[in-house]
Design a protein around this nucleic acid. Structure first.
Length: 576
RNA sequence: CGGGGAGUGGCGCAGUGGUAGCGCUCCACGUUUGGGACGUGGUGGUCGCGGGUUCGAGUCCCGUCUCCCCGACCA
């Protein structure tokens, strides 16, 4: 039993000035966390209890799916990360330091290198596989801009696991097992979550899905179908394209004088004046970018998207990995590209690669640049007047776009990335030559899966989803206590009865918080609501009639129960 | 890195060149006890840092550091 009179806690009456999002505001106000440096937080007893409950659920489910826990140093020497290439690849995101002899170390941002070398050191036979190892520990990333309290910190607790398999089929089984375990974990955590298709990003690998907790303050944007179960990160999102048409049935291309129309808006206005009934969605916007490959080589690329949409640089960027998209403005160096009047008709001749968003289909007719200052062309048909080198998802995805599976409207929403699973493949196995001997005595290169859960971030994500104007409202599984017993009233009777009930509840196996401070009732009630324990048992004025009050924090309801039935009622609440 | 804002007791904030303040918190005593109660008395601050102007700087000037927010970035 924890008594409020001795609990290391101070709640704040005012919101901290530096906190914007609810999770940050409330976790600080309710005394769960305190800021130490940008993106670095201390956890107070209430916070530790909640973080501990979240970690325990994660561990239980990882163990249940056959994972085995290991613990790595946070402080690791440079050479391991030199071997994998990440000492340089990670760039400024890596916390680096030196020991007294000047040897380079880093604070691990993630532990692929350690997992891989550990397995390499211990296992050497195909009979040892498959195996899944996991860790729950603090990791470090020198984020350019930490924000929103523990939602995006520079030091954070993460569960990372890795599966080691002999072949793709094994990897798929490990991946599926993790996916199922993650669903159980997030369900037990009380998190509303979505599994969305993702791009695997800089980590390489193929199949990749993210677990997102929908929240208005989330940093990730994703789409979900309003009628089927399709969901994807915007980077990976697909949109159903219009049907293709036969290019030969289209009216011929026509070049028009459209002076002073370097933007879609001005173009549409002028075309309308000239009697062409068009809107922006029937224009083709061609955006020039430079692609810089990891080796430093640069290539010009023009991307075509419907004119009523912007290019989504994140989406485009994710689809040109590992190359990087760099803004282009060297029109002087490329006289063939007429700023504001670029059309795809001549790009092939200029030797410039042209890709279109999948919304631009064969046989579609467009108003677009005529590659001369002040001139545009209408009736420009893909497959007749130009032929792109391919398609690339680059246009912004919008609410109402058709679902690629069923054609219903997609909805665009924000979410917090709480988990990411993907098939890493052989990147690290290759870097560290991780082989085991196969049945035929020949080495087999191991294939890996990588699966992460942001544990401290999950605490913030839960707080983000579970709060009201009064404070936090924890789901049962993660609340710092199962029940919050509040004694109010000036007499000793309430205090004595509350003490006895708290003891009985504890004996029944519950984690009990007892407010024995004896201050004014308002303070106790406000604090109880702020802290967010889901069941609040009030021992107050109705004690004279032999009853106590059992409140449901979430519903805001209150039930009178006989003193003798109180323990049973709380247990039913907590376990029900 | 670009843009915006802010640095004054534990928290939130005011401060007009002239004795550093208010609310909350905290401590003591008394009253109070079903919605952050009241009274009286108290604790707590080198006003981010360094220069400068001035008889005198929290306030004006120069420099610098830090933090927060939006964007860029981000397994």
């Amino acid at each position: 039993m924890q008594r409020m009179s001795t609990l290391f806690l101070r709640t704040l009456r005012d919101d901290p000035a530096d906190a914007e999002v609810p999770s940050h505001r409330l976790l600080v106000r309710a005394g769960y966390i305190r800021r130490i440096a940008p993106g670095v937080y201390s956890w107070l007893p209430l916070g530790v209890r909640t973080l501990g409950r979240v970690s325990r659920i994660v561990r239980q489910e990882m163990d249940r799916m056959g994972g085995q826990e290991v613990l790595f140093p946070a402080l690791v020497p440079r050479d391991l990360y030199e071997t994998s290439g990440r000492w340089t690849e990670y760039g400024d995101l890596l916390f680096r330091l030196q020991d007294r002899r000047g040897a380079d170390y880093l604070l691990a941002p993630t532990h692929e290198e350690l997992f891989t070398t550990m397995v390499k050191g211990e296992l050497s036979s195909y009979k040892d596989l498959p195996v899944t190892l996991y860790q729950v520990q603090t990791k470090y990333r020198d984020e350019a801009r930490p924000r929103a309290g523990i939602l995006r910190g520079r030091e954070f607790v993460m569960k990372d696991s890795y599966s080691f398999d002999l072949d793709d089929e094994g990897l798929q089984r490990s991946y599926d097992a993790h996916r199922a375990a993650y669903v159980r974990i997030f369900t037990r955590l009380g998190l509303d979550h979505r599994i969305v298709a993702a791009v695997s990003g800089a980590m390489g690998g193929s199949a990749s899905e993210e677990f997102l907790a929908p929240a208005v303050n989330g940093e990730d944007t994703f789409v979900q179908c309003t009628s089927c179960d399709y969901a994807a990160n915007t980077e990976a999102a697909e949109v159903q394209a219009a049907p293709e048409q036969d290019p030969s049935t289209r009216p011929p291309l026509q070049v028009l004088d459209t002076p002073g129309t370097p933007t879609i808006e001005t173009l549409v206005a002028v075309l309308r004046e000239q009697g062409h009934d068009l809107d922006a969605s029937q224009t083709l916007k061609n955006v020039v970018v430079t692609l810089r490959s990891p080796g430093g080589a640069e290539e010009l690329l023009v991307v075509g998207v419907p004119g009523d949409r912007d290019v989504d640089l994140k989406r485009l960027g994710a689809n040109v990995e590992p190359a990087e998209v760099v803004p282009f403005d060297d029109f002087a160096g490329h006289p063939g590209l007429v700023r504001g009047y670029i059309g795809p008709q001549v790009l092939a001749d200029l030797g410039i690669r042209y890709l279109v968003d999948p919304l631009v289909v064969r046989g579609s007719a467009w108003a677009t640049g005529a590659n001369q200052e002040g001139r545009h062309a209408v009736g420009v048909v893909m497959g007749r007047d130009f032929e792109p080198a391919g398609t690339i998802p680059a246009a912004e995805v919008r609410d109402g776009d058709p679902c690629p599976r069923c054609g219903s409207a997609l909805s665009v929403d924000r979410g917090i990335e709480i988990g990411h699973i993907f098939q890493l493949g052989k990147k690290y196995a290759n870097a560290f030559s991780l082989d085991v001997l196969g049945p035929d005595g020949k080495p087999v290169r191991v294939t890996m899966g990588s699966y992460g859960i942001g544990v401290s971030r999950a605490v913030a994500a839960i707080a983000e989803q579970c709060n009201d104007e009064k404070g936090l409202v924890w789901p049962r599984g993660v609340a710092p206590f199962d029940v919050h017993v509040v004694a109010v009233g000036k007499g000793d009777d309430q205090r004595v009865a509350a003490e006895r009930l708290a003891l009985e509840l504890e004996e029944a196996g519950l984690d009990v918080l007892l407010d024995d401070r004896g201050g004014s009732p308002g303070v106790s009630f406000k604090d109880a609501e702020l802290l967010g324990v889901p069941s609040i048992l009030v021992v107050g004025r109705s004690l004279a009639e032999g009853t106590v009050e059992l409140r449901d924090r979430r519903a805001g309801t209150s039930t009178d129960v006989a003193l003798a039935d109180a323990v049973t009622a709380v247990l039913a609440d907590v376990r029900g």
